[in-house]
């Protein structure tokens, strides 16, 4: 993900109801797309045998397709919580940069008013807020408004999976096994920069394959991805 190095906005940040409405309306399509993705995640939880309340809480509190898909793939008894936390930190590190960018936009805004809004921060709401700030000035109301349909869609879709008359049959079992990988796969095209991505990605794939085969499959992502990132850093530029 490319982070634009915005300078501190000359315009005073606000949190207006007009911005909230603007963001809410603009993000309404996410009710459908996030709802569908949340439904798939819910069905996967259902196939795993997780209760409805736990699945809903998962989507509500963790609220990250990446983190949920990855921790789902690590599900075992007893739960490898430390490895799960490390995986969450590693795969959601982009939020650190999104947050740092938002600080540049809303730096003069009271931090106590921003922190609750950040609970609902998602890739799409960050992108939309950054774009809206360029047109209308930084408005934290827009960030909150655009985040709400996304969160309702995701959590509501997960809950719907339990309300719908679907059983953990053959296709559902297949979904449980394959969809976590597919979730992450859908994010891959957005990460492609140019041909410079080839060597780091190849390194990540080969190291992950070796770690999964000879060490431990649950560490293949972190070690493989870490080695690939080191290769990426050898390039002069990030592009």
């Amino acid at each position: 993900m490319t982070i634009t190095s915005a300078k501190t906005s000359p315009r005073v940040p606000t949190m207006t109801s007009a911005g909230f409405r603007r963001g809410l309306v603009a993000a309404l399509p996410f009710l459908l797309s996030n709802g569908a993705a949340g439904l798939v995640m819910g069905l996967t939880y259902k196939g795993l045998g997780l209760g409805a309340s736990h699945a809903f809480l998962f989507s509500l509190l963790v609220y990250s397709a990446t983190a949920q898909a990855i921790t789902l793939s690590m599900w075992a008894s007893p739960l490898p919580i430390v490895a799960m936390v490390v995986a969450c930190i590693a795969t959601n590190s982009r939020y650190l940069l999104m947050g740092a960018h938002l600080r540049q936009l809303f730096g003069r805004f009271a931090i106590r008013r921003m922190l609750p809004t950040l609970f609902l921060l998602a890739d799409a709401s960050w992108l939309m807020t950054s774009s809206d700030a360029e047109r209308n000035g930084p408005d934290a109301g827009y960030l909150l408004g655009s985040s709400i349909p996304m969160a309702i869609g995701w959590s509501g879709g997960t809950a719907l999976a339990y309300a719908a008359p679907l059983a953990a049959g053959g296709s559902l079992k297949l979904a449980g096994a394959l969809l976590p990988t597919m979730f992450i796969a859908t994010l891959l095209p957005s990460q492609w920069k140019n041909l410079k991505s080839v060597w780091p990605w190849l390194t990540s794939a080969i190291v992950a394959l070796l770690v999964a085969r000879f060490v431990d499959a649950s560490w293949s992502m972190l070690i493989g991805g870490g080695c690939g990132t080191l290769v990426s850093m050898m390039e002069r530029t990030d592009a």
Binding site: M1, T91, S93, A177, W201, T203, A217, S220, G226, T229
Partner: peptide
Amino acid sequence: FLRLAPGNLFVAFIVGGCLSGGLAGLVGT
């Protein structure tokens, strides 16, 4: 490092998933 990590982590994760998901998983992915 943080800026460059996600794509590489996604690739490594997908490789692991395809490895356990068999040929059908690879095709679907």
